[in-house]
């Protein structure tokens, strides 16, 4: 077979396919993107929580973006336990200082990183959280220690608005 010469017509075909593909993509994209979070869902992006009445050893659960957020005022023993853990013992190594800005307050998404269940407070082998769905154990810093979950429970963006209020998101 001899080499084919590119003709004017070949160019026109290719150009037509290219324009057609771009046009099809432009039509398909809105159909796909409409399933992403809409403006009203995005508008509920932050929550303020009053923590004035919480004593050490108490956990509250608040809803943020439809997901539970655990706010725990940790006891001194729990803080000591979390800080004593060696990083090489962790599946997902993170220092406790990096997870709790103020060591007394642990604010994290109460969502198991395995398949999204809500872990139970003060259960499991590491005195932290235990997920009843598939048996993941978390320590007092919410770090994964045992079970199928791949990572530590997520820390959302939050800040102390004043001593009594935390703003999540």
């Amino acid at each position: 077979m001899s080499e084919k010469k590119v003709k004017r017509r070949d160019f026109l075909f290719t150009a037509t396919y290219a324009v057609g593909a771009v046009g099809a993509a432009a039509v398909v994209w809105p159909m796909i993107d409409q399933m992403n979070p809409d403006a009203s869902v995005k508008a509920l992006a932050s929550t303020e929580v009053d923590i004035s009445s919480m004593n050490p050893g108490k956990t509250i659960t608040v809803l943020w973006r439809g997901k539970p957020v655990f706010i725990r005022r940790r006891t001194q023993e729990e803080i000591a336990e979390a800080k004593a853990v060696k990083l090489e013992d962790l599946k997902h190594p993170e220092k406790d200082e990096d997870r709790a800005k103020d060591p007394e307050w642990l604010v994290m998404l109460g969502v198991c990183t395995h398949l999204g269940c809500v872990p139970l407070d003060q259960k499991g082998d590491y005195n932290g959280w235990f997920c009843p769905c598939h048996g993941s154990h978390y320590d007092t810093s919410g770090r994964i220690r045992k079970g199928p979950a791949p990572t530590n429970m997520e820390i959302p963006e939050y800040k102390f608005v004043n001593t009594n209020t935390i703003k999540i998101g």
Binding site: V41, R65, G66
Partner: peptide
Amino acid sequence: TWLWGGYSVDNPTLTR
């Protein structure tokens, strides 16, 4: 997130 239409299973998820 795309499947849910939000940050958790919620109303947009149910309707689809």
